[in-house]
Structure formats: structure tokens, C-alpha cells
């Protein structure tokens, strides 16, 4: 049974119940587990022991790429590839290249941020054991779940079930892989 099981899922009715249960699961030393919430619960990252998201680093890389792209494009097209003097102005100046480089910084940052978010989250992933749970619709609405995966080294069907029940979870069920 355990081989075909993805893990255990427990239901919590309120954000506070979920929050305190998450602290217990974290303190029990589990690593491969997750909370399912209909909205971002304030402070839950801390209760789960999650580290700060690294999306900003990807965004920064995107922003720097965007700025350099703008500057390089304007310099190469105007001062290298086809030089054309307009209004006696220099062929290249970071001054007139700035507005476009600024916009490209923002454009590339936005794409890097969203792309980075999808990449870190492993999305799109349209099939996932959690999505097969028959109560998942409620998890998108007003209910909260904790899922502990079977691949977690500390996972043990009986003990993990007891932990979830002691933490206040109801309807502790096994999820099919």
C-alpha cells in the first residue's frame, strides 16, 4: 500500500488551526510536506520553516539583462551597424539610450519574475496527486490541508497519521500516487 501512496492529507477548518499544526509538523522534522490553502496565509512560511523565496535573484538577473540589452542594441544599431547622424547629435549616448533601456529593464524583470516563479514552483503541472483528492475543491474555497509525502524519510503511516490527528487534523486520508 505504502508504495502506491503519495502521502497523507489532513483537513483543517481555520487558518489558525492550520498555522499551529504546521508548526508541529515542522518541529517534528518533516521536509517533504506542504500546506494547501485557498489564499496566502500570513506567517505560514515561518510556521512551515520555509526560507525566503529566491525569485528576486532571478528578477535581478532579468533586469540587468534587460538594461544591457537596451544599451547594447542602441549602441550597436546607431554607432556600429549603420551610423546616421540625426540633428547633429552623437551616434551614441547613454542619455538618449536611457528611456528605452529603462523600459527593457522592467520588461525583462517582469518576464524573469514570472518565468522564475513558474520554474521554482514546477508549474505548469496539470496532474498532481493532490489535485486528485476529492475534497480539493474545498481547498480552493475555504478549507486548509496539510499533505505529508510518503517519500519523506520520517514518514511512517501510523506515526504520521497520529501526528496529524494530534495537531488537530480531521479526515486524515491517504492520497493515491
Amino acid at each position: 500500500m505504502a508504495a502506491s501512496s503519495y502521502g497523507l492529507i489532513a483537513t483543517f477548518e481555520t487558518p489558525a488551526a492550520l498555522y499551529h499544526a504546521a508548526e508541529k509538523v515542522r518541529d517534528a522534522g518533516y521536509k517533504n510536506w506542504d500546506c494547501i490553502t485557498p489564499f496566502p496565509v500570513h506567517g505560514l512560511d515561518k510556521a512551515m520553516g520555509l526560507r525566503r523565496s529566491i525569485v528576486p535573484r532571478i528578477s535581478l538577473a532579468g533586469g540587468i539583462t534587460g538594461f544591457c540589452t537596451g544599451m547594447t542594441m542602441i549602441w550597436w544599431t546607431g554607432a556600429v551597424d549603420y551610423t546616421l547622424t540625426v540633428g547633429g547629435k552623437p551616434l551614441f549616448s547613454p542619455m538618449f539610450a536611457f528611456p528605452i533601456s529603462y523600459e527593457l529593464t522592467i520588461l525583462f524583470t517582469a518576464f524573469a519574475t514570472i518565468g522564475g516563479m513558474f520554474f521554482l514552483n514546477g508549474l505548469p503541472m496539470h496532474y498532481h496527486p493532490v489535485l486528485k483528492y476529492d475534497q480539493i475543491k474545498r481547498g480552493m474555497d475555504d478549507t486548509f490541508f496539510i499533505v505529508i509525502e510518503a517519500r519523506d524519510p520520517r514518514f511512517n503511516l501510523a506515526n504520521t497519521r497520529t501526528l496529524l490527528e494530534q495537531a488537530g487534523g480531521t479526515e486524515v486520508k491517504e492520497l493515491e500516487a
Binding site: 490553502t37 496565509v41 520555509l50 517582469a110 519574475t113 516563479m117 508549474l123 505548469p124 503541472m125
Partner: peptide
């Protein structure tokens, strides 16, 4: 995109949302 309300996802999502707000302002 197969969103499943995972808090590990919300964590990155909220950060991404904040950064988008941060770049949309300028």
C-alpha cells in the same frame, strides 16, 4: 497552470507578485 494552493507555491507567488508591483510602479 495546475495551481493547487500549495504554500510552497504561494511563497514564490507572493514574492513574484510583490516584485511585479515593485517594477510596475516605476
Amino acid at each position: 497552470m495546475g495551481w493547487r494552493g500549495s504554500n510552497r507555491h504561494w511563497s514564490n507567488y507572493e514574492m513574484a507578485y510583490l516584485i511585479l508591483a515593485g517594477v510596475s510602479t516605476p
